[in-house]
Nucleic acid binder design. Structure first.
Length: 766
DNA sequence: TGGTCTAAAAGTCAAATCCA
DNA sequence: TGGATTTGACTTTTAGACCA
């Protein structure tokens, strides 16, 4: 451009190129720079390419400093760049296509026989794993490669292997990789290898009992069957066997089937079946006693969970104290609520049942049962004792001999258990009760054997018992049962007591305010819609952190104001303005343990002295509040003046760093609730024929329909919709909904409960 | 480990331009 | 008019921050 101005030649470009080509000039490679361009009357920065030229000086390239103007987008202003650059003679462009990381990855996968995990890919292409992962993502998006994990029936969706997803170009690669049997690790890998070896080398099916002794077998096998599709599962006389399809011939399988049917499975399966049957038997009897009113405790309830197949599962699993990843299983757990003083004061007596029919019930087994109880959070105390309200109950089928030595006496197992504070029930006691009730003689084992021989294919033993004993009607069907949802462990944090300037402190957070009455002296602040910001100042340095401790950039003007302080402020940043609402540290002292009112007074004094009249730094106003009516009033006016909502802070409260504390309560005016779809139907009567969705919230663990939502678009059952909440009618129906937003990120189990809705209603002002 | 989002760099394409 | 080069608009790819 300089030459063009100097020579006034318009067609300079091609002449220069020509001279360069002929060897009179040297030129640089193309430099990308921005220059101002006027387009349609508006100036803006446009990207250009430029070369620099110099007079040719022999043949060797020359290193020379150049300078040019461009626009620095990061800093947002014009800059002058100085750099040393090579001037060289003209060379015909070599058409060498650079191979990109993406191409490398696709090539690596294509050249591999089998599908690859991402870390294997990164090893092959020799790039950092993180770089490879982002590139893989890009390639997936553009459908240049595909990925696959395994379908996890447990969660009902695809999940990844322990090493991640498998990436491939051709589907055969995925199938071939699975045949290598190296995508699953640990115990599961061993199991799959045993099955494989037994099939291939010993040419036999593998019984489940050979693979597992504990209860985790179902999980492991579910995953293996889902991933390795060539593992076949077969049931022979109640026993489960596994083999690899395509390795054993059909004759071999038939032969072994006959063998197992004849020999082994009958006895074991009879005995395990008897065990489970006994559990059902005493449970049904107890239910019958409850409905007859002879059980003695008015409203006991069985603990249960819902299994994958949607059935109730009364075998209760509890997390172990010594290793929370593992569980203990208990046969039945019965809760007996007692109300000694009032219905509000409910005490729970928990009966934990262990039922044994024949198999291994001895002193040692009782001891392990008690150890199991001590070793769960629900039944054990922190000191590793059984909780006082937990009663271990053992259901036995036989009296037993007096073969246990206690001191100088010999006692029976039942006596031994009772001596230790346990409770022993005999199956015969249940049988006697049922005999009185039905008038016919009932023997559990006889009943089981009849079912086992005869009609076991058609119905379960439980149903058979219900038919025999209660004429097909289950006593107390689900009346006294409560589904137990596993609680998540709470993380405990060490409270912060002292603050070092420059070290980020986890900010204190608010809980929701539901319009509860205000009992202690409190203050109300407008809630500012910005970025949480913690400002540290000391020795002329000023630093600001976001809510998660990331650095926030500060303007020089702000730094100039704050640099002489030695303090830590808490506040909210909106655009370039800082709204301060708390003080955590001042002149060498941590003040978070001082009451809120003191901290605020101090902050306001500082604000008045140093920040008055500043646009950059402001102190958030506060109002004293005495009751909830006053809060409502203030809320209205504050929201009107454009704030997001309000925060109520207890005057005497300390600053609880990192906690979502109940000392600070926030409230926003508009509320939403999450409901899930229970049913979808097309309304044929209406002209537009919309889909009518029944939406429900939870009510004591059961879905309860609170709204019918009709739209032209269909939402699937169990999907979650977010509705704007205005109120509830007398029949617990939602009122006046404007729109429903699908929430794909939520599951129905995260939806609101009826109690939530009532609380929200109480807090929404009319 | 999985993923999303954004900015910027790198690359592509075809029209415009220039010259002989 | 043909070939070389420039140019601007556009697309593709990479880097890096952030999140669960």
């Amino acid at each position: 451009s300089e030459l063009r101005i100097a020579t006034k030649i318009n067609t300079l470009d091609s002449r220069l190129t020509d001279m360069w080509k002929k060897g009179y000039l040297f030129a640089t490679d193309i430099i990308h720079a921005y220059r101002p361009v006027n387009r349609k009357g508006k100036w803006h920065w446009s990207k250009t390419r430029q070369r620099f030229y110099m007079q040719a000086n022999g043949f060797a390239p020359v290193l020379k400093e150049i300078s040019y103007r461009t626009f620095d987008a990061k800093r947002g202003r014009e800059v002058i760049i100085k750099q040393e650059i090579l001037f060289h003679k003209y060379e015909r462009k070599k058409v060498t296509k650079k191979v990109s990381v993406g191409d490398n990855i696709v090539e690596a996968i294509r050249n591999s026989d089998v599908a690859l995990f991402s870390d294997e890919i990164s090893e092959k292409v020799d790039h950092a794993p993180k770089k490879v992962r982002t590139t893989i993502n890009y390639l997936l998006q553009n459908k240049k490669i595909s990925k696959k994990g395994w379908f996890n029936p447990n969660q009902g969706r695809e999940s990844w292997f322990k090493k991640g997803f498998l990436y491939y170009v051709k589907p055969e690669q995925y199938a071939k990789r699975l045949q290598l049997r190296d995508v699953i690790d640990g115990r599961k890998k061993d199991v799959s290898e045993i099955i494989h070896l037994n099939s291939e080398v010993q040419r036999r099916m593998t019984p489940k009992t050979e693979l597992f002794e504990d209860t985790r077998s179902e999980d492991i096998m579910r995953e293996l069957l889902a991933v390795y599709r060539d593992i076949e599962r077969i049931e022979i006389s109640g026993e489960t066997f596994y083999y690899i399809r395509g390795i054993l011939s059909s004759e071999e399988i038939e032969k072994q089937k006959v063998y197992w049917e004849r020999n082994k499975s009958k006895k074991t399966s009879l005995h395990t079946g008897l065990g489970h049957g006994a559990e059902d038997f005493f449970q049904l009897s107890t239910d019958a006693m409850c409905s007859d009113g002879v059980f003695g405790i008015p409203e006991p309830w069985w603990e249960y969970t819902i299994s994958q197949s949607g059935e109730k599962r009364y075998n209760v699993r509890k997390r172990r104290r010594d290793d929370p990843r593992r569980i203990h299983e208990f046969d039945r757990v019965l809760h007996c609520p007692l109300m000694p003083f009032s219905t509000k004061n409910v005490k729970d007596i928990i009966l934990v049942f262990e039922a044994k029919y024949r198999r291994r019930m001895d002193k040692e087994y009782w001891d392990t049962f008690i150890t199991k109880l001590k070793n769960t959070y629900e039944f054990g105390t922190n000191d590793g004792l059984v909780k006082f309200n937990v009663v271990p109950v053992v259901v036995l089928s036989w009296q037993g001999r007096e073969d246990i030595t206690v001191g100088d006496k010999k006692v029976s197992l039942a006596k031994y258990i009772t001596m230790q504070g346990g409770l022993v029930l005999f199956l015969t006691e249940f049988e006697r009760y049922l005999k009185e009730k039905t008038g016919q003689s009932i023997y559990f084992k006889k009943m089981f054997k009849e079912w086992f021989r005869g009609i076991r294919e058609e119905k379960t033993f439980t149903q058979y018992m219900i038919d025999c004993l209660f004429g097909g009607v289950r006593p107390n069907p689900g009346k006294y049962e409560i589904k137990v949802v596993e609680k998540k462990e709470k993380k405990t944090k060490e409270p912060t007591t002292s603050i070092a300037v420059g070290n980020f402190v986890q900010p204190m957070l608010c809980q929701e305010y539901f319009g509860t009455s205000i009992e202690k002296p409190s203050f109300l602040e407008p809630k500012i819609d910005g970025i949480r910001c913690q400002i540290h100042c000391k020795d002329g340095e000023v630093k600001a952190f976001s809510r998660r401790g990331k650095d926030i950039k500060l303007k020089q003007e702000v730094i100039d104001v704050l640099k002489n302080f030695e303090a830590v402020f808490d506040g909210e940043k909106v655009a370039d303005t800082f709204h301060l609402f708390d003080l955590l540290y001042y002149k060498g002292k941590t003040v978070i343990e001082k009451p809120y009112a003191h901290r605020r007074d101090f902050l306001e004094r500082v604000g008045k002295k140093y920040f008055e009249g500043l646009d950059m730094i402001k102190i958030v106003p506060r109002f004293e509040v005495r009751d909830s009516d006053q809060v409502e009033e203030l809320m209205k006016s504050i929201v009107k003046s454009g704030y997001e909502g309000i925060v109520i802070k207890e005057a005497a409260s300390v600053y609880e760093a990192g906690r979502r504390s109940s000392f600070w309560l926030k409230k926003k005016p508009q509320r939403t609730v999450d409901l899930f779809v229970v049913s979808v139907e097309k309304d044929e009567k209406r002209t537009q024929k919309p889909w009518v969705h029944e939406l429900a919230c939870w009510d004591k663990g059961n879905p309860m329909v609170v709204f019918k939502h009709s739209t032209t678009e269909k939402h699937e059952v169990d999907s979650v919709l977010e509705l704007t909440f205005i109120g509830l009618t007398k029949n617990n129906r939602l009122r006046h909904i404007r729109e429903a937003i699908p929430r794909d990120d939520k599951t129905k189990y995260e939806c609101n409960s009826l109690d939530d809705l009532k609380k929200i209603e109480a807090s929404v002002s009319e």
